[in-house]
Design a binder for these strands. Structure first.
Length: 599
RNA sequence: GGGGGCGUAGCUCAAUUGGUUAGAGUACCGGACUGUCGAUCCGGUGGUUGCGGGUUCGAUUCCCGUCGCCCUCGCCA
């Protein structure tokens, strides 16, 4: 039989019920609250599993001498062991808000395991404290239910993912944290090398190249819950270090990866959060997503798709529409079902200002009534013209129509964002509803105005849709890559591709982007070399765990699902990191700081 | 790097047009109380108004600078 010290718990603070009545038990936990009634004291004892009420009666049967006096001095967050007997409460004294509310622990002896100073903020779920303080004393904030629940479900989710992938033959393989800096992409976090003075490791922005080398190695199926590091400015959904479900498979095409990841996400969401995702996830071509939703990460919780009305506008009496078409632009609209009454003139003015901020010159609108259209474009769409427009927009009386006319890029951006805004105002973006989709065939390259050259739209290892493409310089903007994004509720949660697996093609891509053979050798030589010795066709994906968990739990940002996050200035308020180091350490590494202020 | 918001008691917040001794709730400390569960009642401690400077007879309030936190644009292949 297992040894148990006298103070150690027999049960947790979440599990005692009427089934345990009259049993002698020991609980360990933190004092969450205490209520004194003269000769009677109530303690709420908390651990990860719940809260149980402890009663200490000065003259109670079996109450050890001195117990009451010592308990009287206890306060919030003291850590104690309570010996006692489980007692059923009278019917009128049951606390229905707690799973343990039907019983209480009648204490015979209370041992103080650790005394606590008054905490800087109250460790109660309902107590408010600003985030700065909560981050500084993260270990106290972590005692509270919102964070404990987030970390608990996150762990369940990750375990489910591991089980899923392990069950399908994936190997969990660790890749280096100390690795090589590469010029493209995000800024690297650097680590100086002592034994190679003047040289630096970089922390990985992702395990990308190593997982591809795993494929060259014939490991066939790789996965890793991988920490990634990027030294860029932060947002609510970005931390300097974050976690990805990273995986790669050999001898596969897009549908193999997508099918597997879809099943994995469904499994993880179910096991981790009890969320059932509707399947299959729709798959959109990049172009199709842009046309219908105005963006490459559609929020499918509601419809309100962008409808092209360019042909109808071509012959319109409305000069703004006709002029846009004549200049090679497009006219598109969205139909907000039943929204006519929900948007006043002022509300529509606000929408106009909103799209104005996105580059649109204006917002044409009409409310659909049984008698026809009302609104800014009504007089140009009387009678049949109006009927045709409504038909095109699939609009019925009570609907609100919103149109933007401009160059395609502007229209898609303006209407795409407007769709999200109006959808939000109409309550169509329910945080308890989850809709996923895939977006495929992204452009391979995009033009960088600033640098006046083409650059990777996704990553330099994504294969072009046409394996045997001759010249990347011809019709560059229309070359598609075999890249795909996983999207949930308008959040990009994953990104991957079928990779280039032949040295010659990879080298040509680099060359097209102006990376010289010397630079290729210096930065990616080991990957190019590896392909000399037989690289299998392969592809994979990386999913952002922090964002996925935050979304599933309806949290505002990913700090709420990370145990020890950093501030938006990439600072750890609890550990005080980064910090200065001694001159000796600097000297040993043969580095010097040029910072104006020394920490 | 740019824009915006915030900073007052341990915590959450208030303080009129720039004007008396900067208040309230809560926490904390002391007292009363044998059925509370956000206990209640009585009393008390607690302030570099983030920091530095300026304007003023007088600054929490206005101005300049600075630090920190949050949001956001750029950035994040």
């Amino acid at each position: 039989m297992k040894q148990r010290a006298p103070w150690q718990r027999t049960h947790t603070c979440g599990e005692l019920t009427l089934a345990h009545r009259d049993q002698d038990v020991v609980l360990n936990g933190w004092i969450e609250n205490h209520r004194h009634h003269g000769q009677l004291i109530f303690l709420d004892l908390r651990d990860r599993y719940g809260v149980t009420q402890v009663v200490v009666d000065q003259d109670g049967p079996g109450t050890a001498a001195g117990t009451f006096e010592s308990v009287r001095r206890l306060g919030a967050e003291d850590v104690v062991a309570v010996h006692g007997r489980v007692r059923a409460r009278d019917a009128d004294k049951v606390n229905k808000n707690r799973t343990t509310g039907a019983i209480e622990l009648f204490a015979t002896q209370v041992t103080v395991l650790s005394e606590a100073e008054t905490p800087p903020f109250e460790v109660l779920d309902k107590a408010e404290a600003n985030e700065e303080l909560r981050m500084q004393y993260r270990y106290l904030d972590l005692r509270r239910r919102p964070l404990q629940e987030a970390l608990g479900k996150r762990a369940r989710f990750v375990t489910a993912i591991r089980n899923f992938l392990a069950g399908r033959g994936f190997l969990d393989i660790e890749t280096p944290i100390l690795t090589k800096s590469t010029p493209e992409g995000a800024r690297d976090y650097l680590v100086p090398s002592r034994v190679h003075p003047g040289r630096f490791f970089a922390l990985p922005q992702s395990p990308q190249i190593f997982k591809q080398l795993c494929m060259v190695a014939g490991l066939d199926r790789y996965y890793q819950i991988a920490r990634c590091f990027r030294d860029e400015d932060l947002r609510a959904d970005r931390q300097p270090e974050f976690t990805q479900i990273d995986l790669e498979m050999s001898f596969v095409e897009e549908h193999d990866v997508l099918d597997l990841v879809e099943a994995m996400v469904v499994h993880g969401m179910r096991e981790g959060f009890g969320i059932e995702l509707p399947q299959p996830f729709p798959r959109f071509d990049f172009e199709q997503a842009m046309e219908r939703y105005g963006c490459d990460k559609p929020d499918l919780r509601f419809d309100m798709t962008l409808v092209d009305c360019t042909e109808l506008a071509r012959t319109s009496d409305f000069k703004v529409f006709r002029a846009a078409v004549e200049l090679g632009g497009v006219v598109k609209g969205i139909c907000a079902k039943g929204a006519a009454e929900k948007f006043s003139r002022k509300g529509i003015d606000e929408l106009t200002a909103f799209v104005g901020g996105l580059g649109a010159k204006g917002l044409a609108w009409a409310k659909v009534t049984a008698a026809g259209l009302e609104g800014s474009i009504a007089k140009f769409y009387e009678g049949d013209r109006g009927r045709l427009l409504c038909e095109r927009m699939e609009a019925e009386p009570g609907d609100l129509l919103l149109f933007v006319a401009d160059q395609k890029k502007v229209v898609n951006k303006a209407l795409g964002d407007l769709r999200l805004k109006v959808g939000g105002q109409l309550g169509l973006r329910d945080p308890a509803v989850f809709r996923c989709c895939w977006v495929l065939n992204f452009p391979m390259f995009e033009w960088n105005d600033e640098k006046a050259r083409w650059q990777f739209a996704h990553n330099p290892f994504s294969a072009p849709v046409d394996w045997d493409i001759g010249d990347f310089g011809v019709d560059t903007a229309n070359i598609r890559s075999r890249a795909y994004d996983f999207v949930m509720n308008g959040w990009e949660l994953g990104s991957g591709s079928i990779r280039i697996h032949r040295r010659e093609l990879q080298a040509r891509v680099f060359e097209f982007l102006g990376i010289t053979p010397e630079q290729q050798r210096a930065n990616f030589g080991f990957l190019l070399d590896a392909y000399k010795y037989g690289g299998p066709p392969h592809g994979g994906i990386a999913l952002g765990v922090d964002r996925l968990v935050a979304l599933a739990l309806g949290r505002e940002g990913i700090r709420d699902v990370i145990a020890f996050p950093k501030t938006s200035m990439a600072y750890d308020l609890m550990a005080d990191a980064p910090s200065g180091v001694s001159p000796e350490q600097m000297a040993e590494l043969q580095i010097a700081s040029t910072a104006k202020k020394t920490p």
